[in-house]
Design a protein around this nucleic acid. Structure first.
Lengths: 215, 215
DNA sequence: GTCTATATTACGATAGAC
DNA sequence: GTCTATCGTAATATAGAC
């Protein structure tokens, strides 16, 4: 999965806030997006970013044109990851219910893998052109999910009578909410076991199989 | 449900952005929180608020001490609503599974009823004391939900083997995600039918009852 | 590449007239 | 209660030395 590019010049080097070698635009993006997710994009100043990188504002500006470039690159990373999932073999071939499950599982992987970027994406409000473009792509992703749910109903694998758009929204609402608490260092909770929990909860429900229906 | 106070001096009067009678602190809170949810709290300036209220910044300051007072009052409104649910008769008496369902349904009602305030609450980052206090109360609410899920497992009404904390988080993640798309003017989708969808999806799952298990 | 210093604008907040 | 005018601060961004 990784960061999609090839070379990784400073990812490990910078781990632990160690300040030794000069920055490049990519390593500063990492720093920035981390701070954005902690304090919010609008709540973060270039001074905050520079302090987190242990350099001055001016040095920061040497590498990037400004806050919005950082936001744009981060949002693109998240969106490219999600759309790549929609293009995968198992997302386009087979029964809709299987394609849906695949997209759910892989989306959770992308979310965990690109956690800060996806987090930022999910909090965008649409105040600038960059943000509005991201929102539009997000809506496009949502439409693709709704279509999958719709087809799964048509093919008889989801209960008829459910509202496709609503179900899709609630499903991805559940998935997206993961960014609010998931922390990679947590250890045992992998993207896979998280996906298991989500799929289990939405597919089978939490009802105790033996239990009497309660109404 | 309403706005908890008694008199409603300008709620209807202000509907439709009509500008006629003088403001008070409560009617300005409504205006402000609406803008906050659209542009984000940090992304909103007092100038923005004043423009939305069709008065000047100075006039706005005549009624409120500043942005943070507006935030504090909004967050308190959301949190008070949610905690009131936990204190309701049906949230403290009976089987845990029934108490849980009641809290889920009533929380959705509060969310819909106090939509902008709950929206703001869910987006708080913890940058100020006011925000950190709200986050702490939110965590306390979360712990109460986890406890309910836990008890429902103990009482044998939820499948054993599920992770209580994870289930609680995913459940309320699904519920909370509603603020990202629900619009009251939408018409036919009431809090009740929304709650039905959430309960149905999480309790029964979306599997077609007649369908063969697929793995 | 990184720094100090600074230009410029935006923002939160207040003073004082009406 | 609302206005115009303004103060002080903090933010984005750049210039120029090293």
């Amino acid at each position: 999965m990784a960061t999609a590019g090839g070379r990784r010049p400073s990812a490990t080097r910078r781990a632990g806030n160690r300040r030794s070698q000069p920055y490049d635009a990519d390593s500063l993006l990492e720093v920035a997006v981390k701070v954005f997710t902690e304090r919010g994009y609008d709540g973060t100043s270039m001074e905050d970013l520079a302090r987190a990188a242990r350099i001055t504002k001016s040095s920061f500006y040497y590498h990037v044109s400004g806050k919005e470039e950082l936001l744009r690159r981060s949002l693109d990373r998240a969106l490219d990851g999600l759309f790549a999932v929609l293009a995968e073999e198992r997302a386009v071939q087979g029964r809709a219910i299987d394609r849906l499950e695949h997209v759910v599982r892989r989306s959770i992987e992308v979310l965990v893998d690109q956690l800060p970027h996806v987090t930022l994406l999910l909090r965008v409000r649409g105040n600038t052109r960059v943000e509005r473009r991201a929102l539009e792509r997000r809506r496009e992703f949502g439409r693709a999910i709704t279509k999958l749910v719709s087809e799964a109903v048509s093919e008889g694998d989801l209960r008829a009578g459910i509202d496709e758009g609503l179900t899709a929204r609630l499903l991805f609402g559940m998935i997206n909410s993961v960014v609010d608490w998931y922390r990679p260092n947590g250890g045992s909770l992998t993207a896979g076991s998280l996906a298991d929990a989500v799929v289990s909860l939405t597919v089978e429900g939490w009802r105790q199989p033996g239990a009497q229906p309660r109404r």
